[in-house]
């Protein structure tokens, strides 16, 4: 299973889990997927300091542009 497929597999559980409100399970699975998905270049941003923070958005965009394109 490739990293993308690993994340997508977890997301699949989320979509189906919506009906069952299995959000706790989804979070646990996503953590596992992030571990599997290091090759996917998943960037963990944390919380923005405030909704719509312009400075945070600028920092995110700068970080994205500083990294080589890769999956």
């Amino acid at each position: 299973m490739s990293p993308v497929e690993a994340v997508a597999a977890v997301e699949r559980q989320w979509f189906f889990g919506q009906a069952a409100r299995g959000l706790g399970l989804r979070e646990m699975q996503f953590r596992v997927a992030l571990d599997l998905a290091s090759g996917l270049q998943v960037m963990h941003l944390g919380h923005p300091p405030s909704l719509g923070s312009e400075a945070w958005t600028d920092a995110v965009l700068a970080a994205l542009r500083a990294l080589p394109p890769h999956v």
Binding site: R31, G46, V60
Partner: peptide, 13 residues
Amino acid sequence: LGRVLWIGPVPTC
């Protein structure tokens, strides 16, 4: 597809 970003807390459960 170039990047996947995760926004929010690191899942801890």
